[in-house]
C-alpha cells in the first residue's frame, strides 16, 4: 500500500460519506442522479464477488463491505425513503447504453474468460463511465449544489490518485494492469471539465453554474 493508493481509497470513502450525509441531513436527493447510483451498486456488486471466497486483508474486506452497503443504502434512500425529492424528470440518461456495451467489451477483452474475471472486468469498464448520468443531470439543470460538487470532486480524485498509484507500482513493483489503467484514464478524463469548474468556481465560494 503506497500513499497514492491510501489517499485514493480515503477520497473514495469520503465521497460516499458526503453523499449519504447530504441526503440524510437535507432529507433530499435533489440534484443527485439515481441512475449513476444504480450503476455504482452494479459496479461494487460485480467487482466484490471475491469477498465470499478470497481473503486478502482485513482492510480490503472492511472497505468492500463499506462500499457495498453504502451504495445500496444510497439507492434505497433515493428510490424509497426520499423518493419524493428525486429529480427523475432530469435524470433521463439511458443506463442500458452503458451497461450493455461495457458488458460486451468485458466478454471480449479480459484477463481470463471465467465468470468472476469477466464480471470484475465489466465492473472496471462500467465504473469508468458510471458518472455520466450524474454529469448529464448537472448539465441539464445547469448547476450543482456545493455539497454535490464536493462529492463529485472527491469521487473524481479517487481514480486520479489510483493512476498515480499505478505509476508508482509500475516503477517500484514492476506491476501493472492495463485494463485498470486504461479504464482509470478514461474515468479521470471524464471529470476534467468538472475539476476545472470546481477549482475556478466552487473553491472561490461560488455555486457551480454552467455557462449558458
Amino acid at each position: 500500500m503506497n500513499i497514492f493508493r491510501l489517499l485514493g481509497d480515503l477520497s473514495h470513502l469520503l465521497a460516499i460519506i458526503i453523499l449519504l450525509l447530504k441526503i440524510w441531513k437535507t432529507r433530499s436527493c435533489a440534484g443527485i442522479s439515481g441512475k449513476s447510483q444504480i450503476l455504482f451498486a452494479i459496479v461494487y456488486t460485480t467487482r466484490y464477488l471475491d469477498l465470499v471466497n478470497t481473503y486478502i486483508s482485513a482492510y480490503n474486506t472492511f472497505m468492500k463491505i463499506i462500499f457495498l452497503s453504502a451504495s445500496y443504502t444510497t439507492v434505497y434512500l433515493m428510490y424509497m425513503k426520499f423518493k419524493a425529492t428525486y429529480d427523475h424528470n432530469h435524470d433521463t440518461f439511458r443506463i442500458e447504453f452503458l451497461v450493455l456495451p461495457t458488458f460486451v467489451l468485458a466478454l471480449l477483452i479480459n484477463h481470463e474468460p471465467s465468470v468472476v474475471e469477466v464480471l470484475w472486468t465489466f465492473s472496471i469498464y462500467l465504473e469508468s463511465l458510471a458518472i455520466l448520468p450524474q454529469l448529464f443531470l448537472v448539465s441539464k439543470t445547469g448547476e450543482a449544489e456545493s455539497i454535490t460538487s464536493h462529492y463529485l470532486f472527491a469521487l473524481g480524485s479517487y481514480r486520479g490518485l489510483y493512476l498515480l498509484n499505478w505509476v508508482y507500482r509500475y516503477y517500484a513493483e514492476d506491476h501493472y494492469d492495463l485494463i485498470a489503467i486504461v479504464a482509470g484514464l478514461v474515468q479521470t478524463v471524464l471529470y476534467c471539465d468538472f475539476f476545472y469548474l470546481y477549482i475556478t468556481k466552487v473553491l472561490k465560494g461560488k455555486k457551480l453554474q454552467l455557462p449558458a
Binding site: 493508493r5 486478502i56 480490503n60 481470463e112 489510483y162 513493483e173 494492469d177
Partner: peptide
C-alpha cells in the same frame, strides 16, 4: 490471468 497483486486494489 489477472495478477493476484491487483486483487488487493478496491
Amino acid at each position: 490471468k489477472r495478477d493476484t497483486r491487483s486483487k488487493d486494489e478496491l
